[in-house]
Simulated scan of single mutants.
Amino acid sequence: MLSDSEAAELLSFLTPATRPDVKGRATEYILGLSGHRDGCRFLRSRPDLVAALLALTSDPSIAIVKDCFHVLINLSADETLHQVLVNDVGVLPVLLKNLVDPEYVFSDQICTILSNLSRHEKTCRTVFKVLQEQLGVAQLVDIFCTEGYNQKAKLHYLGPLLSNLTQLPEARTCLLDPDRCVVQRLLPFTQYQASLVRRGGVIGTLRNCCFDHRHHEWLLSDAVDILPFLLLPLAGPEELSDEENEGLPVDLQYLPEDKTREEDPDVRKMLLETLLLLMATKAGRRTLKDKNVYPIMREFHRWEKDVHVAAACEKLVQVLIGDEPEPGMENLMEVEIPEEVEEKLKEADAKEQEELQKEENSRSGPTQ
């Protein structure tokens, strides 16, 4: 790695006044450093270099700005650099200021950096705090949901950013405010075919929101009507009986022969997990049973080939067709599980995952 004198010389090249060709070679060199672990470790010890790169994101040279953002993406992918980027370099105010600019060329890169920085709870809290100070979650959702907000960027990675933010109860509270139409705006994106990243991010956000069981009745009510948006991606073209169709939400009735299901198994699993969370409360179970969810899940299970997704579907079906829990245990999220029982459940879950992996390996066959 560079000596202190070499690092100081490199830093002297990273100024707005430096000749563009010299500046460009310096940013290219740091980009190369950021591509491997030792280079990232070195840059972690030199926040002054990273701060200089952040300043150069306003350079007149597009090539230099592109290199600087590429470095920041690489560094933000390394959790050990998160505190340096957020606290020592102070990237968040600069990134968020540029993100809200509808003319900014590098907003997609900003979305990726923010998504990386918000993956882990500690830094996510800082991201959320600065976000609330500068624009707020509601405005972030507004930007995300406004088609063509930035003609030069797709902003798909705002989806994973929202998903990461909603690991925090305070972020979920902002989205689930009954007096503001925030979470409702995200619902149509559960079937957004142009981007798996955006679609998966929204479904992850909705799943996280469903951890707050006190909002389940509201989410399932006509005020939000979340259920059809979770079920439609799992529903296929299979013909159901008139009786089964009539019990379903209107959007799920008599689906066309060309109806396709969500293509990504991870997203299908998240949808099932969201439905299962909604069934943790008595009101949620009653609603899903009253809305005749079972036939959709029955046909989905027959169709599903991924063993992990099929297992998640089986758990959901067991709750759908099972008896109600005993009095005092209606809210499954509030039931206290004895420590020894919890250990046994963990062991059973680990064994189940092992069996599923074996089954998946046997299906895929030997590799060539």
Rank of each mutant, 00 (worst) to 15 (best):
E6R: 14
A8S: 15
L10F: 06
S12V: 00
P16H: 08
R25P: 06
A26F: 09
T27V: 03
H36A: 11
H36L: 05
H36P: 04
R37W: 14
R41Q: 09
R41T: 04
F42T: 02
F42M: 12
R46H: 12
D48L: 09
L49P: 00
A55C: 05
D59I: 08
I62W: 11
I64G: 03
I64D: 11
K66Q: 14
C68W: 10
F69H: 14
L72N: 01
I73R: 03
N74M: 02
L75H: 00
L75V: 07
S76C: 12
S76R: 03
D78Q: 13
L81I: 06
Q83L: 11
V84W: 02
V86Y: 02
L95D: 00
V100H: 11
P102M: 08
T112R: 12
L114W: 03
S115W: 10
R119S: 14
E121D: 08
C124M: 14
R125K: 15
K129G: 02
K129A: 07
L131P: 01
L135W: 06
L140I: 09
D142F: 13
T146H: 13
N150K: 03
N150E: 05
Q151T: 14
Q151C: 12
Q151Y: 13
L158V: 02
L158A: 02
L161W: 11
S163H: 13
E170S: 14
E170A: 11
A171I: 03
L176T: 08
D177A: 11
D179C: 04
V182G: 01
P188I: 06
F189E: 05
Q193G: 13
V197C: 09
V197A: 04
R198W: 02
R198Y: 06
R199G: 07
N208Y: 10
N208E: 11
C209S: 08
C210L: 07
F211Y: 10
F211G: 12
D212P: 07
H215L: 10
W218E: 03
L219R: 06
D222S: 14
D222I: 13
D222A: 15
V224K: 07
P228E: 11
L231I: 03
A235T: 04
E238R: 08
D242E: 08
E243A: 05
L248I: 03
V250T: 13
D251V: 06
Y254V: 03
D258P: 10
K259C: 10
E262K: 01
D266A: 07
V267E: 00
L271H: 01
L272Q: 01
T274W: 00
A280L: 15
T281D: 01
T281L: 06
K282C: 14
A283F: 09
G284W: 01
T287R: 09
L288Y: 00
N292L: 02
I296T: 07
R302S: 12
E304D: 05
K305E: 12
L316F: 04
V319S: 06
P327D: 03
M329H: 14
L332N: 06
E334G: 13
E336S: 15
E342M: 11
E343Q: 12
K344S: 15
L345I: 10
E347G: 11
D349C: 05
A350T: 09
K351E: 15
E354A: 15
Q357H: 11
Q357R: 14
E359D: 15
E359W: 05
E360A: 15
S364E: 15
S364A: 14
T367L: 12
